[in-house]
Design a protein around this nucleic acid. Structure first.
Length: 248
DNA sequence: CACCAGGTAGATC
DNA sequence: GATCTACATGGT
């Protein structure tokens, strides 16, 4: 998939009809959402203004629920390169091989394949203490006792609560799943970065998770998740210090 | 050898 | 509820 100016060019080895592939991609890339309206609504101060100015067009993907859920369980108290490495490892070991011309890659493993692999094998992939978390959810899904895709029909608060029922899924990971795979743009995953951003840019002091959430919900409103994404991306790629300077 | 990384569970007050 | 700590692993 590549973009040339205003055109997206897609090549696929799947045997789907063209219009189905297009419909899928429109949803996956969140193109059906009125981004301009959202950015307009959250563009309320110099910090987020600069983030929007710099990254206008960035959208939040609607990832597959299972892949998103599993990936964010692995993300807890972990760094991005290692998270990527672990996902790469389990995909190579338990996913399906996918080929397009001379490109070869592996799909994200199914719940069943991870359930079959067993906890010990997952430890071997370097998951650390997250191994039993991932294995348990995998097994529950494989046994038909939980349907991740079924969460799509539920309101934000319900989906979040159900997700938090699993060991290894706390508030932050649940919010990631809600935002990145269920389309709930009011969800706010508060990780160390979001905490830092709200504290340094807005509150000018240390604050608890509860305080951060209360402030951000009140301040940004219903499109909180998108506001977060623009600030987060600016802080991580350009730098939080650069945002601080954009005041006034 | 400390400290950190897209946190969470369990214990405790 | 708010606060404290252990937790696997790999990188500075």
């Amino acid at each position: 998939m590549r973009q040339e100016n205003q055109t997206l060019i897609v090549e696929s080895s799947a045997d789907e009809a063209e219009d189905q592939l297009e419909a899928f991609l429109r949803h996956y890339l969140d193109l059906n959402r009125d981004l301009a309206a959202i950015l307009d609504a959250v563009d309320i101060d110099p910090f987020i203004h600069r983030s929007i100015e710099t990254f206008r067009g960035m959208r939040i993907l609607n990832q597959e629920v299972w892949e998103c859920l599993a990936s964010f369980i692995l993300s807890q108290n972990n760094n991005v390169p290692r998270i990527k490495g672990i996902i790469r490892t389990i995909s190579t070991r338990f996913g399906e091989k996918i080929a397009l011309d001379d490109l070869v890659d592996y799909s994200f493993p199914t719940p069943q394949s991870l359930a079959d692999a067993g906890v010990e094998t997952l430890y071997d992939c370097g998951l650390g203490y997250r191994a039993p978390y991932l294995w348990t959810v995998s097994s529950t899904i494989a046994a038909g006792k939980f349907d991740p895709e079924g969460l799509k029909s539920r309101p934000y608060a319900e989906a979040k609560q159900e997700l938090m029922g699993f060991k290894g899924i706390g508030e932050k990971v649940a919010d990631c799943i809600c935002l990145f795979s269920l389309g709930h743009v009011q969800a706010l995953p508060i990780d160390v970065w979001v905490k830092r951003i709200i504290e340094q840019l807005y509150l000018k002091r240390e604050a608890s998770i509860r305080e951060i959430r209360r402030f951000a919900e009140d301040y940004f409103g219903e499109h909180l998740g998108y506001a977060q994404q623009y600030l987060f991306h600016y802080a991580r790629t350009v730098g939080l210090e650069n945002l601080l300077e954009s005041e006034g």
